[in-house]
Nucleic acid binder design. Structure first.
Lengths: 335, 335
DNA sequence: TTGAAAGCGCTAACAC
DNA sequence: GTGTTAGCGCTTTCAA
């Protein structure tokens, strides 16, 4: 097995504690001389710190864990980038574990691999935890924060304002002359889908438009959801503009519309929600409501930091990061 | 802090070792009665195992670590899926850490967060380690295996046969009547780029075509690399077909060609390498040489297993997984 | 079947 | 500055 500080201590002729001090850089407590000898022995023996031992005695570590609902969500990467950057800046390490979004058992496994060791905090990316798993998380006393996910109660999260997203997207279409506007791919019940739908409805109503049931196609934010919805709308739909639940959904709509022989945006305008790189690689490029995923990651790390420092669960912990409209080529002004 | 086995032991009125036995399911060494009492106490106290302590004494864990070169590579997700599935099947847990591909310091940090604790093995996804970091990895005595990455020496890896990839892609174009064939987006020096170029050249030569320097545009597998190369080729290029280093590169070529007013595939055929989902969401859908990334992940886990079990570094450890051609819509037969 | 005791590799008082 | 000591939470002999 690997060398330990004892081995080094023996080799150099000092006490293990001295080695420990050198290795932890407590520079007030050793001479440059010992430092040099120790460092050299470390090199020769190929010594590697055993973090398990360190964490056991210190009861805290500098690793932040991110639990991600699925490998495929295309914005997860941007959030992780943000987490990584901010973590790195502060000397923390990041580990991420993946978990099927739906399966409770898998969620639990992912959660356990993370909270069964002394991590400094856990960030949960757009993952809807079951009741049991939520309880698990609470009991673990590990600081945590949800990202790209909201709650009605007082759980800590950082996300975008989904009502505003729905509202802004719809309003944008209305301002471009659209009156018959579809909403596609949202899930019906949870927080996000509900709020976005509410925003959509508010925008319509405020502008004297009565929402029609047939304009609404729920789904799972996927490419296929977009395709399917467009098929249902049909080639001769009265709809002139549609709000898509995600970039992928928007592309599904786009391709299916094209297959119908519809021109985008002349015959059908599309505005998508998310604003990931995908918007820029399809033609026409997708106009989108862009979320600042990177920033969510950054703030998430800060939330964990706060919680570690203050040990105070009651400070303000729900945070909404601003969105913006990225005008590209998929919305047509029909005035 | 969290409850420990001592707390449970005290509460139930048994020794810590007994609690440990129950928790580890060594069912020969306790009565159902004690089991029940212990389990109940665990529940009431919200006890959570401290893996740091377990790993310290057992000196091994059931977590496999994956080091990924960047969040953005779009095939990393497929490899991770494969790893996850196989790991899960065998009761291992997966953690992944991200590392900038280029920066040596970042690589080192990523590597250390992983090998400084007793992981059972580490999988490195298409990451080119510096000499120092390679040494670090070797010294750690942790079993490892590179994925989607090859070597000339005897380091363990599982990958596709890059020479065959280059050859097959080029041959496919030739069989469809193309004689002037571009190669775009590969990096010039390392293993992958060199081999694919070799395969490309062999296919050309075997068919009596003399490769031209101007058909070759190196790059970094990115979208922009594709765009740039196409710009260099120009609107009036003699090239009728091109092999793209990655799906993203292919899309870059596609869009730039379109901007030139070229029709794909009638005026320009494109075959891309990788075959991720991206190929299916652009129009026309991209014909590709598809790599079996999922399988790479699966095999990677098995490699780690082998190495743990046999403790034998010398067994066959370089593995090539077969590729296939996915015919879609971006190659035109000009015969 | 259970308990007592040792020890994994490390850090953190405390004494010198 | 450095050594000695205790102990983090757990598993694992060894006895009983």
């Amino acid at each position: 097995m690997s060398a330990t500080i004892k081995d080094i201590a023996r080799k150099v002729g000092v006490a293990p504690s001295t080695v420990s001090r050198v290795l932890s850089g407590k520079s007030k407590y050793y001479t440059p001389e010992t430092e040099k000898k120790v460092k050299q022995a470390v090199e020769e023996l190929g010594y590697k710190k055993n973090q398990a031992a360190v964490e056991l005695v210190k009861k805290q570590s500098n690793v932040i864990a991110a639990v991600v609902s699925s490998v495929k969500t295309n914005f997860a990467g941007e959030i992780i980038d943000g987490i990584q950057a901010e973590a790195s800046k502060n000397g923390y390490n990041l580990i991420v574990v993946y978990s099927g979004s739906a399966d409770t058992e898998e969620q639990k496994k992912a959660l356990l691999t993370v909270i069964e060791r002394p991590v400094m905090g856990v960030l949960l990316l757009s993952i809807a935890l079951s009741e049991d798993n939520l309880k698990l998380l609470d009991e673990s006393n590990t600081p945590y924060c949800f990202l790209s996910m909201g709650f009605d109660d007082d759980r800590p999260f950082v996300s975008s304002d989904d009502e505003i997203i729905g509202y802004t997207a719809t309003k944008y279409l209305i301002e471009h002359g659209h009156r018959k506007i579809g909403l596609v791919g949202l899930d019906k019940y949870p927080y996000t889908g509900r709020l976005r739908t509410a925003g959509y409805t508010r925008a319509l109503l405020e502008n004297g438009i009565t929402p029609k049931q047939s304009w609404l196609e729920y789904g799972d934010y996927s490419y296929v959801a977009g395709e399917l919805a467009m098929k249902k709308f049909g080639k001769d739909t009265e709809i002139t503009g549609v709000v898509a639940a995600s970039d992928l959904t928007a592309i599904g709509i786009l391709n299916q519309a094209r297959n119908f022989g519809l021109r985008v945006p002349q015959d059908l305008s599309i505005i998508s929600i998310d604003g990931t790189e995908m918007c820029k690689i399809v033609q026409p490029q997708l106009t989108s409501i862009s979320q600042n995923f990177y920033e969510m990651g950054v703030i998430g790390v800060r939330q964990i930091e706060q919680r570690v420092k203050t040990l105070n669960k009651t400070f303000e912990s729900q945070c909404l990061v601003p969105i913006k409209i990225s005008e590209r080529q998929s919305v047509f002004c029909i005035e």
